[in-house]
Design a protein around this nucleic acid. Structure first.
Lengths: 204, 204
DNA sequence: GTAGCCATACCGAACAGTCGGTTTGTCTGT
DNA sequence: ACAGACAAACCGACTGTTCGGTATGGCTAC
């Protein structure tokens, strides 16, 4: 089943799949290697622990989304364009890696304390960049200031957490459409006025 | 440490605490009974399994929030008043039982499949009642109809899921204030126009 | 009152199974 | 012959649960 060249990938794929379906603690190393079509010896030749398998999932997502956000911030767009692009991107990425997201939000506490700190730190970096965008928008007078920034931002990140719980790729809705809709709801909520733009957005 | 009369309560409290802090799978029965100041024998005299301990947490929250929502729906208020009250209540309840919420959203997949189904079913009941309120508001022309109801509602429930991850009781913000703010953000997002009312709301 | 009876509450050692990880050995290409 | 890539057997630690047994306290018969 696994590609001839690619024990690592086969193990990773199987691990994400099983972790998402049954949870990290309920998935044994034996189940993973069976699903990947390899043996424990092969797996431990490439990965030094089960924890590392889990941490790899976090690494991958955090790096990917961090790079995306940095690229968006570095453009010459307006603050509003940047924030919208950032929202759309992170939702679309979360949909693309839905299984990873499931594991991410459910099993972070299973990581060894040291790795948990690293994840926390890197998430904070993402969060801070995001907050900066909102702050800039507030200074420009386009976002409301009557609610703490932390609450405004939490209101958006919550969508990412919940996504793996309700979104189904088999559903009638396309990922990009959902991304546009959730982004619109968020921006409508934090805007000075509620200018609905979702109808034009979904066409571009 | 445990009240002289109350092995059950002592165990329950300790279990919620440890499950929230270390996760269900990482908490051994021995740890629970040690923290509760009782023995395993005593615990298994009252609870037939570790799973039942977990399920009890779900039962409690689901029953409580279900009753609250039913009471709100049964009032003679307008749809808008009902929806606002429902939002405020469920956020406040989630803050009051923050540890339970942590366990709820993180460890549901650890339940035996049969119990998982029951939880799913009862959550669907809550969800359906909530959707009905939004639907009524749409018919009355006060909520937008350009985004699927499922997305509108998911956008709110997501806040509940995320709450245990960022809200801290030690923080500067009061629970009721956060509830009003998050509710306002949600209602502003789904409203035909974005009428900010949070300033008056937090005074009432 | 008090002796006998019994249900309930509780104890804690032991069991049986599972798991992550390691050791040892084999095969293959160079 | 030697090193990297694996396979298979194995180990020690830990877990949820069980179960034989003890302590307590109320009820009944006399």
């Amino acid at each position: 089943m696994a590609a001839t060249a690619g024990v690592k990938d086969a193990v990773r794929t199987a691990a994400v799949d099983l972790f998402a379906k049954n949870g990290f603690a309920n998935t044994s190393v034996q189940q993973i290697v069976d699903a990947a079509g390899v043996t424990k010896g092969a797996m431990y030749h490439y990965f030094c622990s089960k924890d590392e398998l889990l941490f790899g999932i976090y690494e991958h997502l955090l790096t990917l989304q961090g790079e995306h956000l940095a690229a968006i911030v570095a453009t010459g767009d307006t603050t509003e364009q940047k924030l919208r692009a950032a929202c759309i991107d992170v939702i679309e990425t979360s949909i693309e890696f839905l299984d990873e997201g499931t594991v991410f939000f459910r099993s972070a506490h299973m990581l060894p304390a040291e790795k948990q700190l690293e994840v926390k730190h890197r998430r904070r970096e993402y969060n801070d960049q995001f907050v900066s965008l909102v702050e800039a928008g507030q200074r420009e007078g386009v976002y409301r200031t009557d609610i703490p920034r932390a609450v405004l931002v939490a209101n958006f990140f919550s969508d990412l957490h919940y996504l793996p719980q309700w979104y189904s790729a088999d559903g009638p809705e396309d990922g990009s459409l959902i991304a546009a809709q959730l982004t619109d709801l968020f921006l409508a909520g934090i805007g000075i006025r509620n200018n609905s733009t979702v109808n034009t957005l979904t066409k571009e």
